[in-house]
Design a protein around this nucleic acid. Structure first.
Lengths: 425, 425
DNA sequence: CTGTTGGCGCGGAGCCGACAA
DNA sequence: TTGTCGGCTCCGCGCCAACAG
């Protein structure tokens, strides 16, 4: 029950619609969302996946979750499939990925590629407007900001009085919507009148939601929506308990890791606090190439309400495991931070290394020869700072995996305990 | 995001609304739905739970699902909580249950109680009408069947011309809806006019859906809906893959069974093909008290479109495991049947013993003294017909657990294999 | 430049009985 | 008994410019 944009091989689930311009999907997802490239190697974080489920179901884990000792906090995988989707009911965008954990041999043979994912190619001719009360009321139409209209709408014929034209825009399901675009009033302004209210009604838009218009290279007008209400989106509680969902994602990943078989995940960019499938190269660069220490200043990108990007500044206050018992030696949100601005409403108190940009860059010392790293991030053995709470200085390695091939552990599972189903504490 | 009707102890999830008349929930669920009683012992069937997920997500299991050898096909549990809910968006009814697998000691001490669940007390003064095209069009109101109006609506004052009154009905979320009830036209008929269309719009009703009006003992008018479209209800595919959901429910139940801890399930009576949590007494009566054989005739209750009940006749064509590899010795849909009427559209080709009513009843031979059954339905040891495909005659026991206490296996897990995460085939 | 409001006209929501099934 | 339709009325959707921020 969703439209799909297939980025690669055959979609396993027989989705029908494809070939929709992925610009619209990315525009709806936001400027910071970046999907990994099909066929490349990625790192999957069960903790991040769990966070998404917790946000989606609006419930933290309540019951007891079994341990999966063979499931590392970061799981290297081959990305076999990436498809973009949009919920038919709500137009909520999400991506489906098919991952396959790498065998020890594959990990050994791995060379970290250079590419770091599909750049979130924000289209040039687009605009995003937050709907006002007037835009969504039944009293009138949609007031188009002047610059927006001139940039993304076809030019009006100003010989007419008033200048009018019909706009045809396609939404993410490839459905056509027609609007009357008129330039009138005193002072003059661009308006969408006829056709606008049926769109608002059909999409159930309210003041505070946003619409996105895109004029792409093929001279097509695309139309997307983004809902304001972050809290409590879908609540599929009537299907499966949230505890079972948490167990399900962990057990599915653990099973796939144990058997080197494929598993499928969904990524909801609008609800998910942080991406939990990232390119291996991005991970390697951040973990082995970056030196961070307590007190260090950093920048981090955030999305604004108007769908643009701004930087927030902060200071690293600690480096430690987020969940030492369940996920020891995890890179997920291992950096504790404080934010400069007091209005740090939804900014997390913990971030991951690849999310931030340290300000004080140390000079790099490339090694004289390719360094062989003996299981540099094996979950079974501690990190350099693995036992240090709030370490003073952390530097992972001078080794640059983007410049030199990275040698990976020969057998990441060889000293792990047999998988059991036991309580944590 | 749902209303809840609490049947017992404190709801763990902090739901706010309660105390709604459960008559409405049962009316919306259908006349055959019967929830087990709080505090009693029940039998949980992972296979049935899996069926519900498959129907809800509209996807069969595609990937590979790990085995859970310690999870028996029928799991005896204590029922700690039962709450009735309705989805806020769709009014879809569902129940939440908290189950706790019994310890070997508890199973040993079990006496099968007599009660067999909350009788689905269909209220007396109610009616259910399938909406016509005229009922749902914007052209007019709702045509009330004469008998229905006279039975469940307050009597009109026929001294007026025409007789009119205002009806106030509460839906399952306790929201008030007001309607103008008038008796007019030539010939005279009961109609709901003002207020009806806003209800149809708000609930997104279409022709084919049903409405239910109930006049309960407290002189309250209740109003429920039932949607016609059985196929593809909610599709929460954007949260968790259906494979992960299947794994999740199995892993959650297996973990709870291994640790004797509580787990939570949701039951959707409108989408679920068969109830997968049934009272222990009902199970025991069907499995130990009933003799069935190939060729035997039986009756089974089904719900009609008009929310009433009718019997369909059929013949038993075989008795065997539905999924011999994954669920050996399972009572779930162990009876293969053929239906008399060729229009057996959605009637399953396999049913469970407790769903049918054999027509040829053998005389009962109560034992002279309480019979001690050594693990009569332990999953690790075969049933009397466990190795027989399409057995000619099956009789489980003359022992009647409703008349005599049933002695249960001392340790249902003692000879099970250690839990592993291995492929099936 | 753009959000909101008063004015107002017209299309469809919605009430009615007439039919017929 | 009740589903659908033509007729009719009137409410409110929706187009317009006038403001003001």
């Amino acid at each position: 029950m969703s439209s799909a944009i297939d980025l690669g091989e055959q979609d396993e689930q027989g989705e029908e619609k494809r070939c929709l311009n992925s610009e619209l999907w990315h525009a709806c997802s936001g400027p910071l969302v970046c999907l990994p490239t099909l066929g490349t190697r990625v790192v999957y974080f069960p903790q991040g996946h769990s966070e998404q489920v917790a946000v989606s179901t609006n419930k933290e884990v309540e019951g007891h979750i079994p341990n999966y000792p063979n499931l590392p906090p970061q799981l290297m995988c081959q990305l076999h499939n990436v498809t973009m989707h949009a919920d038919v009911e709500t137009d909520e965008v999400y991506a489906q990925m098919t991952l396959q954990p790498l065998t020890p041999q594959e990990q050994k043979d791995t060379f970290v590629p250079i590419e770091i994912g599909i750049a979130s190619k924000q289209p040039m001719n687009y605009f995003c407007k937050i709907l006002t009360a007037s835009d969504t009321s039944t009293h009138g139409g949609f007031s188009v900001p002047r610059r927006a209209a001139e940039k993304v709408f076809p030019p009006l014929d100003f010989s007419q009085q008033p200048p009018v034209q019909e706009l045809i825009a396609r939404d993410i399901h490839d459905v056509e919507w027609k609007f009357r675009h008129i330039f009138r009033g005193q002072p003059k302004r661009h308006l969408l009148t006829t056709g606008w209210s049926v769109f608002v009604t059909a999409k159930r838009l309210v003041a505070g939601d946003s619409v996105i218009f895109i004029w792409n290279e093929k001279n097509q007008l695309l139309l997307g929506i983004r809902r304001a209400s972050r809290p409590q989106t879908v609540m599929p509680s009537s299907v499966l308990s949230s505890d079972s969902m948490h167990i399900g994602l962990l057990a599915a990943a653990a099973h796939a890791a144990a058997t080197n078989s494929r598993f499928t995940i969904f990524f909801n960019p609008r609800t998910c606090p942080s991406e939990f499938v990232i390119p291996l190269s991005k991970y390697a660069k951040a973990v082995y190439h970056t030196r961070v220490s307590v007190g260090m200043r950093f920048r981090m990108l955030f999305e604004t309400e108007e769908s643009s990007v701004r930087r927030y500044m902060g200071t690293i206050t600690g480096i430690s495991d987020m969940e030492p018992l369940r996920w020891p030696n995890s890179q997920w949100r291992s950096v504790k931070v404080g934010w400069d601005e007091s209005t740090a409403g939804d900014r997390q108190p913990r971030v991951s290394l690849w999310e931030i940009e340290p300000l004080t860059t140390f000079p790099m010392y490339p090694p004289l020869f390719p360094l062989r790293l003996k299981r540099p991030w094996h979950p079974g053995i501690p990190f350099p700072y693995g036992d240090i709470e709030d370490a003073e200085i952390l530097y992972n390695s001078y080794y640059d995996p983007l410049l030199y091939p990275m040698v990976l552990p020969e057998s990441p599972l060889e000293d792990a305990e047999p998988e059991a189903d036991e309580p944590t504490a």
